[in-house]
Amino acid sequence: MISDDIDHFELMGLPQSFEIDSEKLEDLYQNLSLEMHPDFYGTSTKEKKILSEKSSVMLNAAYSTLREPVSRARYLMSILTRGVSLKKDDLPEDFLQEMFSLQESLDEMLESCDQSALCKMNEDLLKRSNLIQSNFASLFKKLETSPENTETLQQLQKHLNTERYLRRLLDRINSK
């Protein structure tokens, strides 16, 4: 039986690192699914059924977390910051003010159904979000050689916070 508190990297048999071989992840997920999915145990014993269901739940959770760079970064951060005290709500200067203004302009765009303005904002936000994500790899790499580097962790925290606010705006644009 697989232990409940095994981490997602361990479960997939991958090193605990931000850089992952996505093809390998994909292959692992597929092969493991073909091994353990409940669909293949419909005629098995109750114990086997439960085991297959439980392992599939864990496999799905691990895969969906590790596949996307942002969720992978957040997950890895949650492991690396255990017992480390960081400024949790760190943001670039005047960033909140900017987000507030963007939210207000978005209000107006949504009210007037200004499609072209909405598209442009969507594009700008995506660009910014991608820019942030491009920093993840090098920062996490730095941590691999010096895991106690609080400064780097703090920088990552800041980027992840920023990403959340941008994501919030993007979600609002795209849910309409």
Partner: peptide
């Protein structure tokens, strides 16, 4: 006062 919640991206003035 302008504050935000990094858990969810909420902004409050």
């Amino acid at each position: 006062g302008l504050v935000g919640a990094p858990e969810c991206g909420d902004v409050m003035k």
